[in-house]
Amino acid sequence: MNGREKEEYLREYEQLKKKGKAFFPYAIMKDSVMFVLVAAVLVTMSLVMGAEMGPKADPTTTTYVPRPEWYFFFLFELLRIIKSPELVPVATVGIPTICMVLLLLLPFYDTGPERIPWKRPIASITGGMVVVAMAYLTYLGAAAGSPSEIVLETRPQYEQGRQIVAQSGCLACHAIGENGAHGGLGPDLTEIGTMVPRPAIKRSIAVGPGIMPSYQDLGEEKLNQVADYLASLD
């Protein structure tokens, strides 16, 4: 915007303001309605979903697969999309930093006088694409499900085993139902009970065949619970 355009903007703006309404009560009224709406949504969410807790932090379980809050999914997914190791810093730091700088400096490189969205197509299309990309990445992150969660229902007597499997990082390599690594390093365990007998399952977990680590450290009781659970999958 050059000097004349700035002056014109201010003049037009002054007119618009004169034709506007007083902040109180009009804007305040709208704001308050919005407050009530936001508060209602918030209270409902808290009552319905509460605030659950996961198992206590255990620095020794190195197999736990971390999962961020949903609003970091888009960053997290970026990491997953960019796989080659030498490019990882690009995904983790490079792209986000560049985006942040571009966002911060926006008013200093987009200095045109036009404000109507459909009359500044470059800005609007770019903005729209960023919104779609972020929404899509967030969706991908959500759809992947928690790597420490098994949605597949099980009978109560196997619940304990299911918990252990979910929290021991098995899903980093295996899939169970819709969760875990489909096409991962290890075989799909969804119907493992029909393919491998229980003693063989237990031996595999304890020994760790091939590249799979040994889970002997779980202890006899937990090993049995895990084996019971997996043998029940059919």
Partner: peptide, 8 residues
């Protein structure tokens, strides 16, 4: 409070 918000 009495400041105006523009038309629209």
């Amino acid at each position: 409070l009495t400041r105006k918000v523009p038309k629209g």
